[in-house]
Design a protein around this nucleic acid. Structure first.
Lengths: 195, 195
DNA sequence: GCTATTCTGGACCAATCGGTCCCCAACTGC
DNA sequence: GCAGTTGGGGACCGATTGGTCCAGAATAGC
């Protein structure tokens, strides 16, 4: 054993992830990734393989982080507030910091999923993951009375899962805040008790 | 005046549009466009300018065609059926023919809109276009009694506009038909009279 | 301090990118 | 049929793409 690695692998992965999140796969060049991570070409190739492998690793890191975050937010009580918080965070992230990134899974549903089965599988899995988590939260909310029970939980969950990419895409396309809030409120209204 | 153009310009534009629709902007090479249109390089450049100009022209052609189609479908009566038809067509297009294309405006909301103001403007305009058309159809449906009036038209329109990208993206990501239908039914249920 | 091993900067690669240009063929108007 | 003009095939361009490789620097174990 000799000469330890001079960079933090997970940190480099995180920075690569951010570039891919912003620019997507095709529009990101190795030069971009080198600049973002600060690594030299040989180091990056040695650590991650090629561009595609790096992308997949970055995507998986993203998905894991986001899933954890979703579960954390949806665990709050009452469930109605938890769900609202989950969706409000999407539009909050829009204004915060640099231009809109949206959700990387949604972005990849557009870019890679149609032609790359490996990515497609991950994207589809993310959809079911979100639906299950939301359905669970809604059921809990209905049991405790914070969410209206005019519609059954699965039904509402499907509606929210359908709206999720909608919000993410409006964010990424740069919709203004007022419009995002309007849409969001229309959506959350469905969770209310009466009607 | 001499030697007439040997190709149909709008036809070539249409074929270019299809490539861009499938692959997006970055992933489409000039070689792809040449192959799809059957033109030679000089002809294509003379007729449309560069790749970007061709893309914008193709995108505009797409948007115009789709807007016309939307208005035609939403004009049907009763309004409830018109709206249902509009959304059902999205999932019908999925199975029909080659792998999923989704909606080019939604795809571009992800790919180009964040970094290209000209495209962003068009995408945002498309969102309002759809919302207005839906709001109008919903109001008509409520007046004639085919759409429930538990929620006001603007409210419902926002919900549908939010769900529109959701469906398009599920289609593009290759969701199976059963899931698409489930989501669609959950959405359309919101239009019903009772509740 | 020596040696063995690992890491890293950057030269180098072929392929492909979008784009330009020239020259000949084709066609219209007379 | 001739003159004049325009269209189009394809050679060519520099820049950039993702990727390989090697020589030398750095460091651990002894």
């Amino acid at each position: 054993m000799a000469r330890p690695q001079a960079f933090n692998t997970t940190e480099a992965l995180h920075q690569a992830m951010n570039v891919f999140w912003h620019k997507g796969y095709e529009a990101t060049s190795m030069a971009d990734l080198l600049a973002a991570t600060g690594l030299s070409k040989s180091s990056l190739y040695a650590a991650f393989g090629g561009k595609r492998e790096l992308f997949v690793a970055a995507f998986d890191a993203y998905r894991e982080a986001r899933e954890r975050e979703m579960r954390r937010m949806l665990a709050h009580r009452p469930a109605r507030e938890a769900i609202e918080g989950f969706f409000r965070k999407i539009v909050l992230d829009a204004g915060d910091g640099d231009p809109s990134r949206g959700c990387m899974s949604i972005n990849q549903a557009v870019e890679m999923a149609p032609r790359d089965p490996e990515i497609r599988g991950r994207v589809l899995q993310d959809f079911t993951l979100i639906e299950e988590a939301l359905a669970e939260a809604i059921a809990r909310g209905q049991a405790e009375g914070s969410v209206g029970d005019a519609y059954d939980a699965r039904h509402l969950a499907r509606l929210l899962v359908l709206a999720f990419p909608g919000l993410q895409i409006m964010v990424r396309a740069g919709s203004d805040r007022a419009r995002l809030d309007d849409s969001l409120n229309s959506l959350l209204f469905m969770l209310d008790r009466d009607h």
